[in-house]
Design a protein around this nucleic acid. Sequence first.
RNA 1: GCCUUGGUGGUGGAAUGGUAGACACGAGGGACUUAAAAUCCCUUGGACAUUGCGUCCGUGCGGGUUCAAGUCCCGCCCGAGGUACCA
Length: 926
Amino acid sequence: MDYNFSEIEKKWQKEWAKNNVYHVENQSDKPKFYVLDMFPYPSGAGLHVGHPLGYIASDIFARYKRLKGFNVLHPMGYDAYGLPAEQYAIQTGQHPAITTQININRYREQLDKLGFCFDWSREVRTCDPKYYKWTQWGFLQLFNSYYCYQAAQARPIEELIMVFEQQGTKDLQIAQTEDITFTAEEWNAKSEKEKQQILMNYRLAYLADTMVNWCPALGTVLANDEVVNGLSVRGGHPVIRKKMKQWLLRITAYAQRLLDGLDTIEWSESIKEIQRNWIGRSEGAAIDFSIDGNDLKMKVFTTRPDTIFGVSFMVLCPEHELIEQLTTEAQKEAVKEYVTTAKNRSERERQAEVKSVTGVFTGSYAINPFNGNKIPIWVADYVLAGYGTGAIMAVPAHDSRDFAFAKKFQLPIIQVIAMEGEEITPTDTWENAKESKDGHCINSDFITDLPCKEAIKAVIARIEAAKIGYKTINYRLRDAIFSRQRYWGEPFPIYYKDEMPYPIDEQDLPLILPEIDKYEPTQTGEPPLARAKNWTYHNFPLDCNTMPGFAGSNAYYLRYMNPDCTTQYIDKQANRYWQNVDLYIGGSEHATGHLLYSRMWNKFLYDLGLVCKDEPFAKLVNQGMIQGRSSIVYRINGTNTFVSYNLRKDYQTTPLHVDINLVDNDILDTERFKQWMPDFANAEFILENEKYICGHEIEKMSKSLYNVQNPDDLVEKYGADTLRMYEMFLGPVEQSKPWDTKGIEGVFRFIKKFWRLYHPNGVDFCVSEAQPTEAELKILHKTIQKIEQDIERLSYNTSVSAFMICTNELTDLKCNKRAILEPLTILIAPFAPHLAEELWHLLSHSDFVCNAKFPVYEERYLTQDSIVYPVSFNGKMRFTLNFSANATTQEIENAVLTAPESQKWLDGKKPKKVIVVPKKIVNVVI
RNA sequence: GCCUUGGUGGUGGAAUGGUAGACACGAGGGACUUAAAAUCCCUUGGACAUUGCGUCCGUGCGGGUUCAAGUCCCGCCCGAGGUACCA
C-alpha cells in the first residue's frame, strides 16, 4: 500500500491518546530526564510554522531519551494571562476567559496534529485558580520574607521582627530599600502602622512609591523590558514616567547569586552575557568628599579611584537631596529652574537628547581629600538618581561623558593616566577622553607610576584607613515592578487595614479573580478590579492590582511535577525525583524577563527549602526565529497589469505583497490571484516563459505581509512527520532562518523512499528474515552512531541527512531485511513518530515504538577493511595508497617511502619527517 | 560606543587542525510514459583543458603559526542580536 500519511497519523494519534502512551509517573527505577518547552501564550492567530520549531526539537530529544531508558517528563501548558485577551475584552465585552479558552482549544488542536509526546495530564494554565493559588502563595512567602546577606538567603520576616525587638538595626546586613537605623527601644515604641511601614523596607515583595513607566493608552504600568524607545512593546503607545505606589520584587537582593549561578549552568554564552550585563555588577569605591565651608559630606561612587587626582568637578543628579543645601544664593534661581525642567523631562525626551550636554553650577565646592583642591559642584542630568549614590566625581581626561561636559562648560581637563611610551599632549588638544585602564598614573602624588589596577587598590586602602570611604560593589539591576493595573491577571492576596497591606490567610487562597462589568480602568483611574462588587476581605478592602505576565511563568516548571497537588506548592517527593529541568528550549527574547525572574523565584524557593536545586534550568537552548519569505508581485504604475520578476526593470512598478499560498516555487497561480481580492479580478500579466515569477523578501512572519505559513496546511499536504523532519532539516535549531517551503519536497521524497524500503514492490509490506550482510550492517551501525551523536548535540539537521544517506544506500542494496529495518525504525521514531509507529506494528510488534530500546552500535562494524591514504609531499597531494585498516604507522611510513611514486619526489634524499594521521593523510616533508 | 554572535556555491546548509562544499533545494540534460504525475540516472564553486588524464584558483579582507588552516593567533571590513549618559 502507498504511504498514506494522513490515515497513519490520525490512527496513531488516536491510539496514543487512548492508551495514555505518554503518561509519566513520578516514581520509577529509571533515571529521570526533564525536557521543557517555554509554554506559549495562546494568541488568537494560532500557530505558524515558527512556533513548533522548539517543540519539535524538544519532542525529538524527549523521545530519544525515552528510547534510551529514561523516565522523561515532557509537559506542556499555557501562559494564559496576557494583554491581547484583555484588549479584546475591552473592545468586545467578551470575557477574556472565553477568548483564552477558544484560543487554547485551537492551539491544542494544532499541537496534537504534530504528534508531540506531551503528558497532557500535567497541563497547567496560569489563569486556572488551581494554578494561580500557588502563584499567590509564592507572593505571600516573598511578602513575609527578607534577605539576609550574612546567611546569603531569604529568611522569615518574623525573625527580623525579633531582631528589631532585641537589638534594633545594629549589625544587620540585609537587603533594604533605604538605609535606616533605630534601636530596639525605638522599635518597640513604634505603633503597629509605623512598624509595618518600616518592615516594607525589607520585605522581598514590597510596596513603594516608584517612578514607573505609565502607559496612558493601556492604562497600566509596564516593566522596563516592555518599553522600547519610549513606546510600549505591545501596541506601540507612548509611555511616560510617573510616580505611583507599586508592588516590587526585591530581585536586587539576589544580584550576586544570579550572577554567580550563571557559571554553573549550560546556557549559551550570549544569554549569559545579556544577564550579566543586565545585572551589571561593577566594583569600585564610595568616597566621601567634604564640602568647603560647612560640615556636609558628599558621597560618590566611582570605579576609577585611581583617577582621583584628575577630578576637576563634581556632579549631582537633579534629584539629589543635597542640592538645596549646596546651592548658593547667587545660583539659586538657575539651579531651581534647571532642576524643575530636568524633572519634567520624560525618559523619552532624555533619551532623545542624549547628545546635548546640560548642567548648572551650584556655587559650592568640594575638597579633594588627597590634595585639598577646591572642586566646583555642578548639577547635571547625565548623572542618574537610580545608580550608585546619584553623585559623581568627574574626571574629564578619562571619562567620555565628563569630557563632553568639561568641554562644554570649559572646565579643566587634567591628565593623570598615561600609556607606556605615550607622548604627553596638552589635554586641550584632545578630541576624546582616554578611558583605558592599561596605563599608569602620572602627576598623582603617592600613586604616581603605579599601574591603574595597583593604584585602585592603593587609593581604596588609603580611604578606608582614613574612614572617608570604602570598597563597594554596585549593580545596575533594579527591583522588578510587580503590579499592573489590569484585569486579566492574578489578584494580589492582600487587603488593607489602616492603609497598610496585610496578607490574607493562606487558608483562603486562591483569591479568585472577580467578575466585573467592564474591563477598563475606572473613571477615577483606578484599576479595573475596583469595579468588582464586594471586593473585600472580612470587610477590609482588597488590593486592586493584578500581577504581571511573568508572575505565572516564574515557577510553572515546578507545578508540572505535581500539577494536582492541592495541599502544597511543591510536593517534596516529586521535586526530589524530578529535581530541575535538564533541557529547556525556548526563545531568547525572555533573557532579561522570564529567564531572570524564574531564576530568582527558584532561588527564593530554594532558600525556603521547598526545592532541591538552586538553578531551575540546567541547560538552555534558544531556538532561532523563523522569518517569513514574502512573495512580491510588480504592478505597473497606473495600471492593473503585473509584470514578471525578471522583466520588471523595463517598467515603472510598485511591488505588492501577495499571499504565499497563491505561489508555488515562486510561480504565481494567476487564476487564483484574480479571485484573491476584488481589486485584482481584472488583472493582466506580462509573463516570462509563460509563467509569472514572483520576487521575494525575507522579513518577519506576519499576517499583514501575507507570508504566514500555517503548519496545518503543510500537515494536510505532506503529513506531520515530513513537516517535523523538514523543520529540523532547515538548519541548526539555534539559528534564525527564513521559512522556505520549497525544500519540503526533498524530505517528503525521502520519507516515501524510506517507506518503500519496507514495501519493496511498492505495494505490499514485506521484510526478509535473511541474515544481513557485512555491508548492510556497516550502513546500519554507522547510522546508529551518527544519529546518537547528532541528537546528543541537538544537531538534528545532520541527523536527517544521515537518514537520507542510509536510505539511499539500503535502496541501492535492495535491502529489506528485518535485522536492519527494525533498529532503523526505532532510530527514526523521535523524528517521524507516526511513520515509525506504523512500521513498528507492520513488523508485528504489539507494544508502542516509544517503549522500544534505542539500538546500540558496535564498533566492529564501523572499521573499514582498507583505507585509502592520500600521500602528499610538502603539502602537495601526489598519489594515493591502499592499506588494510589495521596497518601500523610504521608499515604505512615504510610503504610510502618505498613506493615507486615516492622516488620521483625524494630524489635520493632522506625525508625530514613523515606524518601519518590515522585514516586521513600521509604527509612527507622533504 | 561596548558586549555577544556570525560571514563557506544560485539557495538552506555539511566539515574532532587532515581530500572544503556532505545532505537537500533549485537549475540543466536524459530514461520510462500516448501524455501527465510519480520514479530513476547524469551534470551542477570558478577558470583553463576535455579523443585520455587533468591543472590552477577558491570558505569576508590582510598578515602569522603549522608538514597541513573554513577551523588556531593578530589586525581590519561587513551583518545579526543585546545594551547604553550605569560613573
